[in-house]
């Protein structure tokens, strides 16, 4: 009787033991796959973006822009071009980022009211992206090698089965002290992320609001970020998404900041 109980316990414990030994690598591999699925879908892309920023007072303001993306290497360098449509007082303003994962990003801005292009500081990846609750890093991605990942027991988000991964920054980081990612087991998109700050308090929550199939690519067409510490929430919606349009690297230069490529931006 005692023996059979012991065997049962051992049998139950065995898969867990295997899982724990395998987690280190598995978790990082899942995060890498997720990063590529989420930030590097296809080779390039164009999308109309609507950003609804709700302040802690509950007031909403909207920003609309067109976003062009070109991947230079899968998981590596990327170029982003943003053309603002609304609010009207910043329309025609353009913004460009050359993302360099193992170095400092480069950013430029074109200010139409004074007709000047200037590089702007990119020291703080953690700062707000165009006044929203998303940071630059949330928009362009944090490289998976910057955190140490471990796999927690599987879970579900709605009717989707997810991996739950805990990430802890390798170097002390002010963005978060711990992050939990809930990654769809099928398409590897992050369906939910929880950012914990000081004293392990939940500070921000990322939610995938809508996932659709576009040109054969599983795409998150709406996402939100809520700041629980300071209050407020931003919802980003993507529409008119096109993939693999054949964007040329020459578009992502200072010249085109002043003169947006009319072929793509009407």
């Amino acid at each position: 009787m005692l023996n059979s109980k012991l065997i049962l316990i051992l049998l139950l414990a065995l898969p867990m033991a295997i899982a724990t030994t395998a987690t280190g690598e598995d978790a990082a591999a899942i995060m890498e796959k997720s990063h590529l699925a989420y930030y590097y879908a296809a080779d390039d892309g164009i999308s109309e973006v609507t950003m609804r920023i709700t302040s802690k007072r509950g007031k909403e303001r909207t920003k609309e822009f067109v976003m062009l993306r070109l991947d230079e290497e899968e998981g590596g360098k990327q170029k982003y071009y943003t053309y603002f449509r609304k609010p009207s007082d910043i329309s025609r303003l353009t913004f460009m980022v050359h993302k360099i994962p193992d170095g400092n990003d480069q950013r430029w801005i074109y200010v139409p009211s004074v007709d000047l292009v200037k590089p702007i500081s990119a020291d703080d990846k953690n700062s707000s992206f165009v006044g929203s609750h998303f940071s630059y890093e949330d928009v362009s991605g944090r490289h998976w090698s910057e955190d140490k990942h471990s796999l927690l027991p599987d879970s579900t988000i709605g009717d989707r089965a997810v991996f739950v991964i805990e990430s802890i920054p390798v170097e002390k980081y002010k963005g978060f002290s711990r992050k939990l990612s809930y990654i769809d087991k099928e398409n590897y998109l992050p369906l939910r992320e929880e950012y914990y700050g000081k004293k392990d308090k939940l500070v921000r929550v990322f939610t995938a609001e809508k996932v659709e199939e576009i040109d054969g690519v599983t795409t998150m067409t709406a996402r939100s970020m809520e700041n629980l510490k300071k209050g407020g929430k931003t919802l980003i919606e993507f529409s008119s998404i096109e993939y693999n349009v054949g964007l040329d690297a020459s578009l992502f230069t200072e010249r085109f900041l002043k003169n947006p490529p009319r072929k793509y931006i009407k």
């Binding site: 910043i90 200010v111 990119a122």
Partner: peptide, 19 residues
Amino acid sequence: NVNEIAQMLFLYEMSGGDP
């Protein structure tokens, strides 16, 4: 002009200053 004021403020939001 109002656009230049708005764009200068937007620039502040963009350039990494804490909003």
